[in-house]
């Protein structure tokens, strides 16, 4: 399961650019600080490699087993 912490995200888009399966994509949702948040669009494709979780500079993504 992909959880994105909306308060911590700064919209740098590293997760959307480097997700090997393109699970994450930019969305039009804006958080309180005005950053565009990523969204998990293809959750079924996620292999749980945790690349986005470790690459996120803001500790805003958590991959967990359902």
């Amino acid at each position: 399961m992909i959880t994105i912490n909306e308060e911590l995200c700064k919209g740098c888009e590293i997760c959307t650019d480097f997700c090997p399966k393109k699970v994450l994509a930019s969305s039009n949702t804006i958080n309180k600080k005005g950053y565009y948040l990523p969204a998990a669009t293809h959750k079924d494709k996620c292999t749980g490699c945790r690349l986005c979780e470790l690459m996120c500079p803001e500790l805003a993504i958590l991959i967990s087993k359902e």
């Binding site: 308060e7 888009e13 950053y35 470790l54 996120c56 500079p57 500790l59």
Partner: peptide, 19 residues
């Protein structure tokens, strides 16, 4: 948190990896 780093800063990734 959130960290004081600029959006996309590598210091955050180092913090995450170190953790």
């Amino acid at each position: 948190l959130p960290t004081a780093f600029c959006p996309g800063c590598g210091c955050g990734t180092v913090l995450n990896g170190f953790l």
